[in-house]
Design a binder for these strands. Structure first.
Lengths: 221, 221
DNA sequence: GCAATAGTGTCTTTGAGACAGTATTGA
DNA sequence: TCAATACTGTCTCAAAGACACTATTGC
């Protein structure tokens, strides 16, 4: 049955730089909006994709060479006005990745990413501005009660690095003492037998406790 | 472009009875699964629906005669295994309605609803069991930090009725004193110049403060 | 020793839970 | 006056914020 509806997945791949959250955009290689920066996306391939999550994984890997440590369905955008080709549905996902992992992948896969601050976007094709707004809001909101920001960090990290990450995502400062008390109580990190040495006192390294699911807290961080 | 993908909306319309949350199911009037109880749902009509929210409203009104006071996108279910007709996408919504409003509508619109407890469902067609589980989980979770349960009540209600509603949705008892303190602090109700008279001391009536958006709290109820 | 960062201890404030109290109605 | 429900006051406890303190490193 042909309902004449276009069905795609789009992925907002988000990372963290010194100056805030960034989203990965790629130059479109096809019409419409050929050559313009837009979210990685593509049609669902009913023959190869088990479901839309599989389609999102495939799109992300095909277009960026990455396998994200965190990928979650965001929202489904739809309507007759969002795509010049006609009535369309985009099942949008968002993904998180560490900046250094992303950059080394850019070299390895020989693709050209464009990074934009999520709060300073140009006008993008389709409703991609809205999708990115949704993704940033979801990330910021969910970070108040989950371990999500861990996925913006490398495999191991110090508590100070984790706190700075939460602060950049949330947009406000946290108290060091209270932060460490909560991290300790919530018990979602495991110590690694290493330290990060720098100019001064070395800091203990941690990794997120291995799990299939995102750690959700029963209170705020 | 025909991708051979079926695209539908399904609505989990939820109400509250004495013994807990109930979901409205209707007997399917078409194949597949003709005659079996299932969620109200239907194809997107690209010619008439502005977007999937409009489609969900239309489906709900066409099949039940209702306009729900609360309707929100839930999740998008997809894949090749959920529908015998082939690879399909269901943009699922959930809606809330008061039991008495629902029942009077059943008579007015001359439709036959079947109500099932969300925790005691038979095996349903497609992945409707999963959709209802998602809806009940979302409702219970969101009720801990929002005014959602108000939409399960009639237009006006007493504080005791509201507390009982929260308790039934959440599945645990709340302290009366603390509950009223919070309702007062959160300031999302407005008093109505009426009381509910019964056998004993009359109770003040309230309604939810008029707003376009759901009231979200910065803490737990 | 000094500067800088890592990490801890403790006081105060706030809000939640427990629970007992008072208030108002119909019969 | 009594039963039943509406509504309030107060004590205790736990978690959060503020902030000062100690610890460990390179130089």
């Amino acid at each position: 049955m042909d309902q004449g509806v276009i069905i795609t997945v789009d992925v907002a791949l988000i990372t963290l730089q010194d100056d805030g959250l960034q989203v990965v955009l790629l130059r479109r290689d096809k019409e419409p909006y050929k050559g313009q920066p837009a979210l990685p996306g593509g049609y669902i391939h009913a023959e190869v994709d088990n479901d839309s999550l599989a389609a999102a994984k495939r799109v992300l890997t095909d277009k960026t060479g990455l396998v994200s440590p965190y990928l979650e369905q965001l929202y489904t955008f739809s309507g007759g006005a969002r795509d010049p080709r006609g009535w369309s549905v985009s099942i949008a996902y968002y993904a998180l990745v560490n900046k250094d992992v992303l950059m080394s992948q850019e070299n390895a896969a020989d693709v050209a990413f464009t990074l934009y601050r999520v709060d300073e976007l140009p006008l993008l094709p389709f409703d991609h501005n809205r999708i990115i707004d949704f993704a940033a809001d979801r990330l910021r909101n969910k970070s108040t009660y989950s371990a999500l920001p861990c996925y913006l960090l490398p495999e191991t990290f110090t508590l100070t690095e984790l706190q700075k990450t939460y602060e950049k995502v949330l947009g406000y400062k946290l108290d060091k003492s209270a932060f460490r008390r909560k991290i300790n109580d919530l018990d979602f990190l495991q110590p690694v037998d290493e330290v990060r040495t720098g100019v001064h006192r070395p800091a203990k390294l941690y990794r997120i406790r291995p799990t299939k699911n995102l750690f959700l807290f029963d209170r705020t961080i």
